[in-house]
Amino acid sequence: MRKTLLIALVLAFFCALMAGASFVDPFSPMGFAVIKEVRLPKVVLALANGALLGASGALYQIVLRNPLADGFTTGTASSCALGAVLAISLGLPFCFVPALAVVTGALGFAFVYLISMRGGTVEPVTLILAGIVVNVVASSTISLLKFLFEGSVLSVVFWLMGGIPLIDWGKILAVLGAFLFCFLFAYRKAALLDVLSFDDYTALSLGADVVWARRAFFAVATVMVAFSVSFCGIIAFVGLIAPHIARRLFGASAGDVLLFSSVIGALILVSADALSRSLLLKGAEIPVGVLTSIMGGGFFLYLLLTRGRYGHSGF
């Protein structure tokens, strides 16, 4: 299964390079240039961004002990987008965009987390409801900023529905670097993540510093979401779906869930990006978040309807 997944990712990568409104011959100088200068950066960004979303979703779900959590449902993504749009509106240098996204993302997540705490544990339904509140407030504020700073801010659709823009390699490498740094930090502590799947008393009795571990992993997950949102806007549901598929295919072990959520997240986003470039004629693109939301919305509904069918575990 691991090999199949890797082969699927490689195939999706090359198909995405070929996908577009019109067919280009990769062996012609013109076609090669289109693939190298336009499609390759977009596909690599989709790959890195999908991996970021998948891994961050896995982290949120494990550490919150909630199979419905990810950067989007916790309100972190829209809070990060608000920070990014604010930094752009204020004309700050680009390095401040992800930095401010991290700050507002952390504030948004902290609000949702504190609201949903009941008796020392996070109440799953309250978490989702509080996430909706943050999403609505942050999205409205983004629309207001767009209204006030018409010229400097990209379209509201880009920030709220997400997209894979054509950006320079330096920024793409920053996204890849953020993924690798955060992923390795979490992956090296996979056994601690496993222990955090227990109730707090049991985790503490096994020697896990539950409070500090949660804070550290939340910070890492928020940085991941901030980097994703700063470059690609809010791409919903990839972070929710990927860990569920990973758990179904490879079991609940945190190391495997992190690794394969990243791979599956990358696979979903590379495929969605390829589709978004191919479905419309004349080079028009559907925002990639529209496609992931259609897929993810259905999956989310399925999760809500089947909640409890698999006992306490969800998946």
Partner: peptide, 20 residues
């Protein structure tokens, strides 16, 4: 009341006892 959020195998649950 032991709470375990995800569906680990029995082997993995017992192995987690060795965490310290």
């Amino acid at each position: 009341d032991v709470g375990l959020s995800f569906n680990y195998t029995v082997f993995h649950v017992v192995l987690m006892g060795r965490f310290p």
